[in-house]
Design a protein around this nucleic acid. Sequence first.
DNA 1: AACTCGGGGCA
DNA 2: TGCCCAGAGTT
Length: 209
Amino acid sequence: MARDKAELFFRKLKDYYGKPGTALNYSNPFQLLIAVILSAQTTDKQVNKITPNLFSRYPTPEKMAGARSEELEKLIKGIGLYRNKTRALINCAKKIVNDFSGEIPDTREDLMSLPGVGRKSANVVLAVVFGKASFPVDTHVFRVSWRLGLTSGKTPDKVEEEITSIYPEEEWIVFHHLLISHGRTICKARKPLCPECPVGKDCPSYQSF
DNA sequence: AACTCGGGGCA
DNA sequence: TGCCCAGAGTT
């Protein structure tokens, strides 16, 4: 039963990694959304380097919608994929202004209609900005939950469904944090450090790759 | 389903 | 210094 295993792993991981830290500190919904878009394929550290200048120049959807791409590009250059993201940011801001009256939409469907916002980013915004139950499934979540035997789905949507059925909503944030921390430090994509893993031999994937 | 987009981190 | 890593969009 996945739920029994989940309880055990959850406890062990929680003992090991502790409580979630504070990662995304943008209280402004628009700025948080933009920071999330910029975070794709990068780290929060990289994003935090460029956001002060970016938001100083384009603090609102209206300002960003009117940005010249050459100018905005300079402000986010240094981060990866800057051409894609420049386009996404400007088009996203325009859509917020034109289709959503300048407000950040609060449904998954509307968020995903915004350029640069996919399934994972939409769920982050729903959770962080609107406090809605949503579980962002990134590659860490996907890989770690699969190795632990908690999920078997082959698509992120399926994994999200499986994983959210295991825990009550109140524990999602902690569990999400644990999967991410674990995926980054021990349960790495290549060369996972199984001997150091707090789950150890209870993991069905222990030393099997 | 496979590929692209750019730079940081680490072997 | 070259390989691996992290999402969204396009074909």
